[in-house]
Design a protein around this nucleic acid. Structure first.
Lengths: 232, 232
DNA sequence: AATAAAAGAGAGCACTGCTCTTGACGAGCC
DNA sequence: GGCTCGTCAAGAGCAGTGCTCTCTTTTATT
């Protein structure tokens, strides 16, 4: 019978989940550096060495948390996008911007784990980059949809795209298909601008200068939309 | 005679400097999390407890490194700005962008310490924020100079600045004086875009998609300049 | 029921930041 | 010149960490 084996595997999956849950809670209060396997084990009523049956190292636990985090923000972004009328490209862009900001404000330490400085000595395995692009394809699809619908009218202020960029642009088209190089550049700028803002806001770089961050963020993202060529 | 006392203080200053130098080297190789007081003491041929005569805690050492780092990037930016003709505002903007990028690429771990996730449990003292704005005033002066010279012709695509932003804008004017609210918004966007790009590049968020980062960065910053209204 | 696989328990290693106490050295005062 | 006092290095020690062993217990399969 394989049901007995399934029973064992079920309790294993259960415990694995419990470990990541506790770890995520510790992460939320202490930050990535303060995440301690022993503390997690203690809270589970386990001895520390037993944790290693489930996660061979601290980095593997972090990897699991990172993948979960990318999926969480990806799901939030997907939901926000899906809640908008598909042809309202500007609304979709603003919705996903606010979705990722809301998630980041609700999970600042997880945001730092995903988008902040890489934890020292930790090399992100390939599994994480697959999850990392989940939100990116949503941004890309919005831009792509708008372009294909003829709804993109960017201001003609940028200098011509330099020739050597075309190779990179071709790779980006795997995520934002069917758009010309100059649109890709604007997409990159909006993308880095979005996360640049969030990192500054969450990491305290505004230094009590921007207090009404909600207003400023919303307006900045509207400007980014205008720069992308999305209609007001 | 106070020269004897000065002698004592001189060797103290010397040792303090040696500690920060070694710590900075460790930081460059191991990252902020791997910075160990004991390792620094070992390399100095000192016993670990002696370090605490000079830095009462690990956080105080980090604070010293952070302040040094902000000053280093501030100085690099100042020099790059000063090397340009004052009326070439676009050239000055591009120069400071490349200066901060060059510094970041040369000191990635220090960059992470300054602009990445805050180290857990570490609260930046007020001394650091004073040093942190050193580069910011340079960006601000470039925008301000260009505006006052009438050289700023931003594309009219942004929606009107929302009224609640005016309070924050007034605070920002302490750094970028004499500019209207909409210019401040564009300055903020360019500023967050610059560091958003650098963080993505240094923290590996581009995931081997953008390989010729130098070309892409330069062009992005030219687009930011155009969005700011700086002449091509 | 016997056997093989999986999981928990415990001790231990090398490391960390940090504190406390002890002993030595040197500068200032009488 | 001798004495005192503040500064400094050294050492031991505490509580904590990640991680690796070995040993025992539990569970599932044959």
């Amino acid at each position: 019978m394989s049901s007995s084996r399934t029973a064992r595997e079920r309790v294993r999956a259960e415990l694995t989940r419990e470990i990541t849950d506790i770890a995520r809670r510790h992460l939320a209060t202490e930050g990535a550096g303060g995440l301690s396997l022993r503390a997690v084990a203690r809270e589970m009523g386990m001895v520390s060495s037993a944790i290693y049956r489930y996660f061979p190292s601290r980095d593997d636990l972090l990897t699991a948390l990172i993948i979960d985090g990318y999926n969480a923000v990806g799901e939030a972004v997907e939901n926000a996008d899906a809640a908008c009328p598909p042809e309202d490209h500007t609304g979709r862009w603003l919705a996903v911007c606010h979705a990722v900001r809301d998630w980041a404000l609700a999970h600042p330490h997880e945001y730092a784990l995903l988008y902040g400085s890489p934890v020292p000595g930790y090399q992100a395995p390939q599994d994480t980059v697959a999850a990392a692009v989940r939100d990116t394809v949503v941004y890309g699809r919005i831009v792509s949809d708008a372009y294909l619908a003829g709804a993109l009218n960017p201001p003609a202020v940028c200098p011509p795209v330099p020739a050597p960029f075309s190779e990179d642009a071709a790779r980006v088209r795997a995520i934002i298909p069917d758009v010309p190089d100059d649109v890709i550049v604007r997409g990159l700028i909006a993308w880095t601008g979005l996360f640049g803002w969030l990192s500054f806001e969450l990491f305290g770089q505004f230094n009590n200068t921007i207090l009404d961050t909600g207003t400023a963020f919303d307006h900045s993202m509207r400007c980014q939309a205008a720069f992308l060529g999305l209609p007001a």
